[in-house]
Each structure stands twice: as C-alpha cells, then as structure tokens.
C-alpha cells in the first residue's frame, strides 16, 4: 500500500514537472525569438525617413503576444502595421510590438516614419539574434563609424558576427529560395547599426560644391590659355605673312649684309 502511494506520488510529481516545463516552454518570455529575419528599407520623404520593414516570423504568434524591440523607438516615430500594435513605456517610447490577432508564421510588414536625425537608431529591429538587413533608397546614404564592427564585402556591409551562411539564410527567408545579393545592403544583428545617416542630396551637395569650384578654376584657366594661344597664333600669322611677302627681299638683304 505504502509502495503504491509512493509510486503514485512520484508519477504525480513527474506529471506536474512535465506540465510546468511545458508551460515554461510555451510562455512568451522564454520562447525562442519569433522573428527569424528582418528587412528594413529606408527612404527619405521630406525631412522624415520612411521605413518599410518586413519581419519573417518563424512560428505563429497568439493574439496579444509581444515581440520586444532591440531598441525603443523614441517619441516622434509613428509605427503602423496590420498585424502588430505598438506597446509604449511610461515615456511614450515604443518598446515592443504586440500581435493584434493571431499571426501565422511567415512575412509581416510594418511601416515607420521617423525624423532623419534619429532614423539610424529608429529601426524596428526585434530583440532577437536574427539577422536584420537594412537597405537604403538612393535618397539616403549611410556611413559606418570607425569600429562599428561592419565590414565591406563586395558591395554590402556585414557585421563581424554574421557569417556568410547566416546572411544567405536571411536573404532566402526574406526573398525566397532564389534570393540574389542585394547591393548596398547592410547586415546587422539586434540594433547594432552604428554610423551616420544623411540625405544623398546633402552628401552630393558637398562634393558638387568642390567639383564646382574645380570647374570654375579650370574654365578660367582654359579662358586664359585661349587668349594666350590666340595671341601666339596672331604672331605666327604675322611672321608667316612677312615671310611670304618679304621673304625674298629679307634673304637678299641678309646676303648683302
């Protein structure tokens, strides 16, 4: 009888432990990160940057389930998404996104609008070790800071901790099996994008100013050269004329003297 009771107690404990473990596993805070890869396409629109983000969910999300952001999105940023609702902290910064309804695994899109000055740090990157791909339209330009851990690799910028396999897997998740190299893309993990973001117009404006100065100098130089050459040609014409008209007489005079 005693042995039976002990066996039943052990079985009950085992069952309890199993349920607790299952409950812990399925709780939102301890589940494996739901986002497998993310893409952020940045475009300048007036004085603000419009970000079109794509999240690839590796597993379904239940309604109300949260995905924490790697960095909070400060006040002044507006986020819209069909599937997600922004969750704000006491200061009003968006710290997480909550599923509006049950979301299937796969691609989900978000739109963010943020002032240009903050745009670099204002990307909806999930708090997860997944690879984030950041792409810039021609209206924007990104310059990484020294020691940012980003390396140039044949037309793309990749963080040191991202291996080629991880990058290619992220590309495949975002673009499909036949994903091709996205020239100019930046690959980082969880909010580690350090550098300067500026409008291409501002950047090109500085270069154009320098080139414009060079152009003015060269044009002035050409003008001066042309004047000198014209004088030289006029002189040569006079010499030629004199030689043609008076050549014989001059030779005769030279011989006499």
């Amino acid at each position: 009888m005693k042995r039976n009771t002990t066996t039943a107690a052990v079985a009950l404990l085992t069952l309890l432990a199993g349920s607790v473990a299952q409950a812990i596993e399925s709780s939102p805070s301890s589940r494996a990160p739901a986002v497998a890869a993310a893409d952020h396409l940045l475009e300048l629109s007036g004085a603000r940057v419009r970000v079109e983000s794509t999240w690839v969910l590796s597993q379904p999300l239940a309604a109300g389930e949260r995905v924490e952001l790697a960095r909070p999105l400060l006040v002044g940023s507006a986020l819209h998404s069909e599937g997600f609702q922004p969750m704000k902290d006491a200061r009003g910064a968006i710290v997480a996104l909550s599923a509006r309804h049950a979301l299937a695994a796969g691609v989900h899109r978000l739109q963010l609008s943020t002032p240009l000055a903050q745009a670099r740090t204002q990307l909806p990157m999930p708090h997860s070790p997944c690879v984030n791909r950041v792409r810039l339209e021609r209206s924007l330009r990104f310059e990484p800071t020294a020691g940012a851990g980003l390396r140039h690799r044949m037309g793309i910028l990749v963080a040191d901790d991202i291996e080629q396999a991880a990058r290619r897997q992220a590309d495949r998740l975002l673009d499909g099996r036949h994903a091709h190299r996205r020239l100019g893309a930046i690959y980082v993990r969880g909010g580690a994008l350090k550098g300067t973001l500026e409008s291409s117009k501002t950047h090109h404006g500085q270069a154009l100013l320098f080139i414009g100065g060079l152009f003015v100098l060269i044009s002035a130089g050409l003008g001066l050269a042309y004047r000198r050459l014209t004088r030289a040609v006029d002189g040569e014409r006079v010499d030629l004329f004199l030689e043609q008209e008076l050549g014989a007489d001059l030779h005769a005079l030279e011989k006499k003297s």
């Binding site: 044009s219 050409l222 003008g223 050269a225 042309y226 050459l229 014209t230 030289a232 040609v233 040569e236 014409r237 030629l240």
Partner: peptide
C-alpha cells in the same frame, strides 16, 4: 602646319565652345 599654336588654340577653343 605652319601655325604651330593653331592646333592647341583649336582644341582649347573647342573645349570652351563645348561648355
């Protein structure tokens, strides 16, 4: 060919006219 500076003048003149 008798005007040695003429080709250079033409080249520079062509550049200025192009501008």
């Amino acid at each position: 060919e008798k005007l040695r500076s003429r080709p250079a003048q033409l080249a520079v003149g062509a550049a200025l006219a192009s501008l």
